[in-house]
């Protein structure tokens, strides 16, 4: 009795998982087709870039500065034991450009915009606005999902580069303040000596994948919201959990992947 019940539960969650993977993959495919085929709605795209991008500059900047400064403090403390404070710029910049800039920006910005998409599209879904779009012969994927996906693909790499720069500057500020033997010019120089193009490509390259996860998961959760306002709330919460997890898990594999090149 309890065995069949727990088997049933396992079966149900496996089915939900497959449904989720199939649903998001289909949506991503259709969104990509819509992005590459006319008619293009540039007004919707511009609106999304503004709503998702410009309004995320604040959160991305604050996160980057805070992380950069804390890294400066920690590495200066740690490397002082080896008498190598002058290496802080090298270590911190590699960590930021390759890993922390992309991942933290994706987590913070993704949480904000992914949940926003789920809430907005979820409300449209439960108030039959998605049905209304379909009833007029229009395609909600083209109208709503495609501009959000493309806007996220554009803004997340840009926000990441901004975050990289701010985080490095933040760490520099702390180091130069606390260690008079490290000058800003020396610090910047050591950063430029260290960072290679491949670090930037590996770091920002990952964000295109993160952007896809964020937008598709947010839109998918919104489109499958069910059961009134409560359903919209659930979709929003699920989006934050699922996007963060996918970013963190995929980060490992993407890092490996980019190292292969």
């Amino acid at each position: 009795m309890t065995l069949t019940r727990s088997l049933e539960q396992v079966g149900a969650s496996v089915r939900r998982m497959i449904e989720f993977l199939g649903g998001t993959a289909t949506m991503a495919g259709r969104a990509v087709v819509a992005i590459f085929t006319p008619p293009w709605d540039f007004r919707a795209l511009a609106y999304q870039i503004e709503a998702l991008g410009l309004k995320s500059v604040g959160i991305a900047s604050v996160t980057a500065l805070a992380v950069g400064m804390v890294m400066g403090v920690q590495f200066a403390f740690g490397l002082m034991r080896f008498g190598s404070v002058m290496y802080v710029g090298k270590v911190v910049s590699i960590a930021i450009v390759r890993e922390l800039g992309p991942v933290l920006t994706a987590l913070m910005v993704g949480g904000r915009i992914g949940s926003g998409m789920a809430a907005e599209l979820g409300s449209m879904r439960v108030t039959e606005q998605l049905d209304a779009i379909r009833s007029m012969g229009a395609d909600p994927i083209r109208k709503l999902v495609a501009p959000r996906v493309l806007a996220t693909l554009i803004i997340l790499p840009l926000l990441t580069i901004l975050a990289d720069v701010l985080a490095v500057l933040g760490s520099m500020f702390i180091i130069c303040l606390e260690h008079s033997d490290v000058t800003p010019a020396f610090y910047i120089n050591s950063v430029f000596e260290t960072i290679r193009m491949s670090d930037v490509i590996s770091g920002t390259g990952k964000t295109f994948f993160f952007a896809m996860f964020i937008a598709i998961i947010g839109c998918y959760q919104g489109f499958s919201a069910e059961g009134g306002t409560e359903g919209v709330g659930n979709a929003t919460t699920r989006t934050v959990v699922v996007t963060s997890t996918s970013i963190l898990v995929s980060d490992f594999f993407l890092t490996k992947l980019f190292m292969a090149f």
Partner: peptide
Amino acid sequence: RESDLRAVRQRIAMLFQSAALFD
């Protein structure tokens, strides 16, 4: 298929019970 329904849907208008206006 959804894409083939477009022609049908453009000939049939629906007033939704909830109005379903775009907010």
